[in-house]
Simulated scan of single mutants.
Amino acid sequence: MPHPQRSVPQSALADLADIPATGRWVRSGSARLHILDYGGDRTPLVILPGISSPAVTMDFVARELTDLVRPLVVDIRGRGLSDGGGTYTLEEYAEDTEAVVSGLRLERPLLFGHSMGARIAAVVAARGKVPLAGTVLGDPPMSGPGRGPYPTSLDAFLGQLAEAERGTDAGSVARAWPRWPRREQELRARWLSSCSREAIAATHRGFETEDFFDWWPSVPGPTALLYGADSPVVTAAGAAEAAAVQPSAALTRVPDAGHMLFWDNPPAALGALRETLRRMPA
């Protein structure tokens, strides 16, 4: 039986009306990419979400940063309103991010990525093809060749996606993510079906075939890494290795949070991100 195509329910599109951002579009090769731009004249901060997180799901983070930066949240290729297709490798995602920076004429932006987005931010910074003011990585997957597997299985991701494709609600999401704020459970229920099955599968495969540590030592400063105190993705050993190979990076441990930093402990994670951004060049 063929799998359903990506879909964005009418109720999900209505969410965009409540978000204080303007939708913008850029082209990366043949793909059109959608960005939520929160505006203002401060330093741009390009926000790159995780493997199954469309841009709208980072709204609660972005709107808390507008007094410090101009947040721009990207619908990563194959998620949200952005086109799918391609290889979904780290370097392709990096090319997309470079296209966002160039296409929107962002002058020396900051990059912040969570999970998959943190890996992408590291690759963009290490490639050095667009000038950046700095990078902040939130709990980047450190799995890879010769390392332990990513702690969430592909079957778990695809099972959640199948549930969303059939139609789900915040109560069902709460069974998997009981600590999340209710609004974030609702957005997850409405927007997960916008994610491409192929994109999730290819990215998950990349978590175990593309090594974060191939790029991290080459990320220029200033750079910082936030990780959850209870994260199974960035373990204490992983954080120690990250600090050892990139001694100039500022590492911050977010208390009482797992991998989903901002969803697990919003005040502490937002406070850590805000403090990190304050230390970055304006």
Rank of each mutant, 00 (worst) to 15 (best):
M1Q: 03
P2L: 02
R6H: 00
R6I: 04
V8M: 02
V8W: 00
P9W: 01
A12G: 02
A12R: 07
D18N: 07
P20H: 06
A21V: 07
T22W: 01
T22G: 03
G23Y: 00
R24Q: 13
R27T: 14
R32W: 04
I35Y: 06
I35R: 12
L36P: 03
G39P: 11
L45A: 08
S53R: 11
V56D: 04
T57G: 06
D59A: 15
T66P: 07
L81D: 00
D83W: 13
Y93E: 10
A94W: 02
E95S: 13
D96W: 11
T97N: 04
A99T: 08
G103S: 09
G103R: 02
L106K: 12
L106E: 12
E107P: 00
E107Y: 05
H114G: 13
R119Q: 15
A122S: 12
L132D: 11
G138F: 01
M142K: 05
G144D: 11
G144F: 03
T152V: 15
T152W: 09
S153G: 14
L154S: 11
L154E: 14
A156R: 15
G159I: 11
E163Q: 15
E163W: 11
E163S: 14
A164D: 09
R166E: 15
D169A: 04
A170V: 05
G171D: 15
V173N: 02
A174S: 15
A176Q: 09
R179P: 00
R179D: 12
P181C: 08
Q185C: 08
E186N: 07
S196E: 10
S196I: 05
H204V: 08
R205G: 10
D211C: 05
F213N: 03
W216F: 10
S218E: 00
S218R: 14
V219A: 02
P222W: 00
P232A: 02
V234Y: 02
T235Y: 06
A242H: 03
V245L: 12
L251V: 04
T252Y: 01
R253K: 14
V254R: 04
P255M: 06
L261T: 01
N265A: 00
R278F: 01
M280W: 04
P281K: 09
P281F: 11
A282V: 12
